[in-house]
Design a protein around this nucleic acid. Structure first.
Lengths: 206, 206, 206, 206
DNA sequence: AATGAATGAGAATTCATTCAT
DNA sequence: AATGAATGAATTCTCATTCAT
């Protein structure tokens, strides 16, 4: 009698092993054989649960995105004001569990590969537009309509940039610090720009 | 004697072909054979000019970094005030020639791979610290000493984040727009945060 | 489940094919592809059973050595006196099955390569010291202690030399003849050297 | 004006580099490029002085054989009695200059390869028969006609075996010791076998 | 459900050789 | 005479995938 319902278990094992392997070795060196070995299963079984390597990669990226989304949603549920909701998005993106070295490296690998892989690209687009949509919705309540688009774009870029710097840095990541910087940036987006302090600087902007 | 002075020519061809190939196919699918084919030479000749694939990749990344640096330096030479110099750094990073689709994709691929490849990692670190050092030096002239570090970190992250978004976006990149956003962010870093304008917003911060 | 227990079968096939191929083509021309072809398997499978080419070569040499050892041990089991045991060692080394042309050629190839390959070198050293130890132990019972070392060295060298001449000769090998020569040499080692027959010859030795 | 008569010089350089390279790396790893590099010339020039790699290898082996022959001939010129001449052959084979590690390793490599390479095989056969012929001629003056053949064969084999052991040994080679063992063996070949010392041993011989 | 045997393509790299200069 | 650029084949090894069991 076969073990029942192994499907989700095995899939989870393989997805986890995929993220780990990509995070540790990079996309180019993450072979099915290595992933299977890390998952503690035979290489043959991978194709029993996933159509091909691409399907496995897609599932892995979907898992990463889903974890991130959960991290944000969890915090959104506790927020009530627009500002709180924006902080929730920021903090959700910088949640501690998102910063394990291998996970961050896997993220970057997926981003790089998504340029060339349509399935991954689609996943990333869906996620990115969802994030933008979240941000934009709250921004509308806080900034002038003319500035919503830029403010959203700017905050989203800063979040990504902070993440990227963390991914590439060899130092341990202080998620709180990243969050604070993003919150601070958000603060400046909300307030009207102060009058130019000194003429010379104003000149420099031109 | 053989055709003299082919070395720099071939090396340049191969480096260009490498960046193109990585940009189009991604790191994982950029094989020496494909690179050689794109450069219009035989696969064997690659190892006549580069010790191994890694040396070729390193040279390609070095080339990308060098182009970026030139782009910044060119603008720094025309700048005189600290603010102008910061704008030079921003604009240099967002120069039009830096935004060809394949080039940007190659950049991302190198960043992702740099996590796992010591030689690439070293190159990236050198470049990153040079950028930081440039920014920090000018920041010191413009913001309170206590805020130099954070301001530098924040601006550098935003530059990277804007770049990353451009890299991943399928839309054509408007470098001027990215520059404007970064300049605007820089503006907010320089000025002291204004007093909370209205109580309701203050409440939203809580 | 896959075809079970293929491991020892395939390994045996591949080892046999390796010895055959090296024996026929020499070390330099024995490629993994040719070996696989001779074994009737695909080139890829070789690395499923052996870590790399070196491991395959090592296994092949180990096999040759083991066959030789068995040939000696089989005869040692039937011997009772020291002299019989020495003859067993000689005859074991010159057993007919050790003289198939390809096998002898493989032996020579391995010896030559062992100089440059640490793993093969180690195998050869283990085997050589085992042979010496066997010989020395029996020699102790038959010759004066002062002469054990030289007698052992001399007999071992003669065995190797006879083998080598056979290996390089294009004529069919008469193992019995080689054995007889070695036994004869052994006989001279056992007896005290006769007094110098004529002074002039003694002088020539000096 | 081109340098005149470079031909023998370059050929000599290349032959020396070939022997060195084969001795250090083995036959399989001695490529034309490596040989040229060691000789301090470009890889292209090799084919200006030698038809192909095989011709270079053949010339190198011919050089080794010639050196050995010179070593013997030099000593033969000083010898007058048959025994002295046999000693000259032995000592010539074990001359110190023949025992540089790389040279001995090159010898072994050539022997192994000679099995598969007709040109090398021919060279080796010519040399071997010359050595045999030398030995046999002198043996005829010293031993009973019925034993000339075996005595020659035995002595030649011992010389080769001692050499082989030296080649494979990691220890420094004591050429004098090898010479002494061969001379001693020769001594036993010349004298009539003594009467059996004890019946039991005689029985063991049967 | 699961194994691991097996394949054949493709990877990086090295090679002997040729050739324009 | 000599260089080193250039080729295309061959090398070892890894890969995704299939399949009998």
């Amino acid at each position: 009698m076969p073990k029942m319902g192994m499907k989700p278990v095995r899939r989870g094992q393989l997805i986890g092993a995929t993220i780990q392997t990509i995070g540790e070795l990079g996309f180019a060196d993450a072979s099915v054989i290595k992933i299977a070995k890390r998952a503690g299963v035979s290489p043959g079984i991978v194709h029993h649960y996933f159509a091909d390597k691409n399907a496995l990669l897609e599932a892995a990226m979907r898992d990463l995105l889903s974890q991130l989304r959960q991290s944000v949603i969890k915090r959104l549920d506790l927020a009530s004001t627009p500002m709180e909701r924006l902080h929730a998005v920021i903090d959700g993106n910088f949640a501690a569990e998102q910063f394990h070295t291998t996970t961050v490296a896997a993220w970057l690998a997926f981003w790089a590969q998504a340029i060339h892989n349509p399935a991954l690209r689609r996943l990333r687009l869906i996620n990115a537009s969802r994030l933008r949509s979240n941000l934009r919705h709250e921004m509308k309540a806080l900034v002038h309509p003319d500035r919503v688009s830029n403010a959203t774009f700017s905050l989203a870029a800063l979040i990504d940039g902070l993440w990227l710097n963390a991914a590439l840095s060899s130092q341990t990541i202080d998620a709180g610090h990243l969050s604070a910087i993003a919150r601070n940036h958000l603060g400046t987006l909300l307030t009207p720009p102060p009058p130019p302090p000194i003429p010379s600087l104003e000149h420099a902007h031109a």
